[in-house]
């Protein structure tokens, strides 16, 4: 396939992901404006960070007056899974030059990873950088444009934040997490993290979040190991 055809194929195969990301882009823009970020800062976050879940978490932390190192540490922890994607794609990227690797790494989201990994595994990675570029650009423009819509909505409807838009964030996070809780270790992680977050709420610099996340992850790992040991016994 020619580069341009591959580019289009990458964008086309990302279509369901584009539709899925759209409402979150709008909610992000609206919430960020409601949390007091300027339109410029909100759009800069979508343009330069380009990692939805960490952007949501950062906005809620900024709204709560968290300290800078806590926001950075949380961003690091929330986005660390992308290192896994980076490692998974490496074998397909053997003959890509650094000029390809840096931009494609910058645009590596959950969605693009899912699309390109599936393609490379099932059809090989010939011309894969063009295919991934197509998916990346589509996701990037989509995220930015829907963030703009969200900012516009947040500005056009004054006091939207006062309507309890903070609940939109709670609802969004809950709806993302709930289906994962069918698995017992994930349930243990969530229960432990939730309990610690509730008991430790109000710690300075929003350190309660880091503490709760740490305890939650440990509980999940412990539960998984326990189940393994039981299965082995």
């Amino acid at each position: 396939m020619k580069p341009f055809a591959l580019l289009l194929a990458g964008a086309r195969d990302s279509l369901p992901m584009l539709v899925g990301a759209a409402p979150f882009g709008v909610i992000f823009g609206t919430l960020a404006v409601g949390a007091g970020l300027s339109a410029g800062a909100t759009l800069a976050m979508s343009a330069f960070v380009f990692a939805g879940s960490s952007q949501f978490v950062a906005v809620s932390l900024i709204g709560a007056g968290a300290a800078l190192p806590v926001i950075w540490l949380t961003t690091f922890v929330v986005n660390l899974r992308h290192a896994l994607y980076s490692a998974t794609l490496l074998p397909y990227a053997r003959d890509w030059s650094a000029r390809w690797r840096w931009p494609l790494a910058f645009w590596l989201t959950d969605e693009t990873f899912a699309v390109v990994e599936h393609r490379f595994r099932s059809q090989g990675a010939a011309g894969g950088q063009w295919y991934q570029l197509g998916s990346s650009l589509a996701m990037y423009l989509n995220w930015f444009l829907w963030s703009v819509v969200g900012v516009w909505l947040g500005k056009a409807v004054p006091g939207l934040a006062g309507w309890g838009l903070d609940f939109a964030m709670v609802a969004t996070f809950t709806a993302i997490v709930a289906p994962q809780l069918k698995k017992r270790p994930a349930l243990a992680a969530a229960a432990a993290a939730g309990a610690v977050a509730l008991l430790a709420r109000g710690l300075p610099y929003k350190l309660d979040l880091m503490l709760a996340a740490l305890v939650g992850v440990l509980a999940g790992v412990a539960c998984e190991r326990l189940a393994e040991r039981r299965a082995a016994a």
Binding site: V78, A189, A193, G194, A197, A213, V221
Partner: peptide, 11 residues
């Protein structure tokens, strides 16, 4: 377990 822990801790 990071997503489940962090998001639940926020909620």
């Amino acid at each position: 377990y990071v997503p489940a822990a962090v998001l639940t801790a926020l909620v």
